[in-house]
Design a protein around this nucleic acid. Structure first.
Length: 291
DNA sequence: GGTAGACCTGGACGC
DNA sequence: GCGTCCAGGTCTACC
């Protein structure tokens, strides 16, 4: 199966794939040329397939198993369009960024899109695994979940899809702590999986563009393990940039940029980007920091 | 609403 | 090799 998927211009495959660390987390894999991204997905039909995504000037070429039926092809295309944000339009942000020296690069590099997972369930789990830990541990915990509980790709059994809520819901907290090494995050992951598997929580409904951002944030904060930082991160992934994911790194960067290295808090980080309004998350994300 | 302390892992460091 | 310290957000209890 070969499908050409056009993007709303301007588009840069490199920019979206390397927008943040998600590309380093299984079941994503980027090849050394950085012109090809692969992802192992479990389709709603139950088939586990690989998406091989090639960069093109004006979009991407999606390659997958040749015998996908029409419905499976449509599902694969729909997911890849979402994952790469191919239909996102950043012209309003670019108009504002053009007058800011520290953001002028975003236009020529076509930055703005952030790589996301096909399901919000996967994005939420991965975000929880980024909290209160080092990035190396996030990579390890995600890899453990995928390798231990994800379904294998038939043509390459060493690679697995991200585990479904139903599969994770069958586990218990002790197993997630001991096998996947999730630590105190284990009950959060388990509770989310159980709520999603039972239908009590419909995370995909949160992708509704008509949902007001404050309401969306409230629903994200209601998930155990998701606090202010994680919620803001997820809002950015969902295309809402009104809140900043303030972590220790953000406070350090803003302190160096505008407060001569003095100790600052989340309020100062927020104030630094207030003028960017609904685009503040993007302005923060792509700001050219003084290192 | 604000604050303190616990949660857990793994890397860095000293012995 | 072992023990200790520390970084990293969120939750809960308490004021």
């Amino acid at each position: 199966m070969e499908i050409y998927l056009p993007a709303h211009p301007p588009f840069s495959f490199y920019a979206v794939v390397n927008s943040h660390g998600w590309v380093q987390l299984a079941p994503f894999q980027q090849d050394e040329t950085e012109q090809r991204l692969t992802y192992i997905d479990r389709l709603s039909s139950g088939r586990v397939v690989v998406y091989i995504i090639h960069a093109l000037d004006s979009g991407v070429q999606l390659h997958s198993e040749s015998d996908l039926n029409t419905a499976e092809q449509a599902e694969a295309a729909h997911k890849v369009i979402w994952m790469l944000g191919l239909q996102q339009d950043f012209s309003e942000f670019y108009a504002m960024a053009s007058s800011e020296l520290e953001l002028s690069h975003v236009i020529e590099r076509a930055q703005g899109r952030v790589l996301r997972c096909p399901t919000l369930f996967e994005d939420v789990i991965k975000t929880i695994l980024t909290t209160n830990t080092l990035w190396a541990a996030t990579i390890r915990m995600t890899s453990n979940l995928v390798q231990l509980y994800g379904e294998p790709l038939p043509s390459e059994p060493s690679r697995h899809a991200f585990p479904t809520p139903e599969r994770l819901a069958t586990l218990d907290e002790a197993t997630l702590r001991a096998e996947a090494r999730l630590g105190y995050r284990a009950p959060y992951v388990l509770a989310l999986a159980q709520a999603s598997a039972s239908g009590k929580m419909d995370l995909e409904a949160l992708k509704d563009p008509d949902l007001p951002t404050p309401e969306l944030r409230k629903r994200l904060l209601a998930i155990k393990g998701v606090g202010g930082y994680a919620a803001a991160n997820l809002l950015n992934i969902l295309g809402r940039y009104d809140y900043l994911p303030v972590d220790s790194w953000a406070m350090k960067m803003v302190s160096q940029e505008w407060h001569q290295g003095e100790l600052i808090g989340p309020a100062e980080v927020d104030a630094a980007f207030e003028r960017w309004g609904k685009w503040k998350g993007l302005a923060y994300w792509f700001w050219k920091w003084k290192q």
